[in-house]
Amino acid sequence: MSTLAAMSALAAETSTSTGEAAQFWILAPLAVAGGLGTVLMRRAVHSALCLAGTMVLLALFYLANGAYFLGVVQIVVYTGAVMMLFLFVLMLVGVSQVDSLKETLKGQRLLAALCGLGLGILLIAGLGQASVATFTGLAAANEGGNVQALATLLFTDYVVAFEVTGVLLTVAAMGATLLTHRERIERHKTQREQAEERVRKEWVTPLPAPGVYARHNAVDIPALLPDGTPSEVSVSPTLRNRGQVREVHEQALADLAALEQRTADYQGRPRSLPARAGLGERTGDDGRPPAGGPAGIAEREDGR
């Protein structure tokens, strides 16, 4: 509380202290850099991090300007909640996606630059024109504490707006639920129907698991079928859609063949035996592609 009082005293002055000036000149470039980073980073997640940083810096500016409540709310709500929501959706959509920064709309970049420059110059020019030599400071307004003063205003003069905003939040929450909710348009299938459908489909057995002979994150490497060909269906459709499936490298296949060969040599079998027989023997004769469990983990650890 004493700090707050001190800052209040600071804000009450008609010109800013040297400390605040120093803070401003250090933090403002950082905030601008964060803003630029938000715009220019190719990965959305980096943009989000830059934005989060800028927001924290802005929270500090709020505090410096005597808006203690807002500063805290900025950190808690914006940086804490909203940005997390952003990251959450980012994860949902594809965190590692790299955006191309090549412009596809003709003249868009030029126009954007023109608009940005024009708007910026105009705003700054307007501000320069409207320069205020003196300013009042918030010492008087924050007399009984910033939060109390805000609350007084909020529940007297702005009570209607406050209530309406409350309604807006409720509606927004409901709207978001409604938007993301998917209406079930067909009847829920019974277990029996699901089983029958599954038998009728191409795959009766479970889909092959990915990651056989993987070298790192095995989920994105297709399994190898007994004849050595990679199985596309073993990779999650989400990854396939995102284009994040990794090819099984030819070297891996060659390694596999060599391994089989060595095994055959060790067991004294003729060399010409195909790799398939060896695999079959190792994983059992049920025709399923080899599951990549322990081997996959081992490979991944090797890869690191």
Binding site: A31, V32, G35, V39, C115, G116, L119, L123, I124, L127
Partner: peptide
């Protein structure tokens, strides 16, 4: 600073 950040965001 506010104007600058606003313009950056707009761009």
């Amino acid at each position: 600073l506010s104007a600058l950040l606003f313009t950056i965001g707009a761009c």
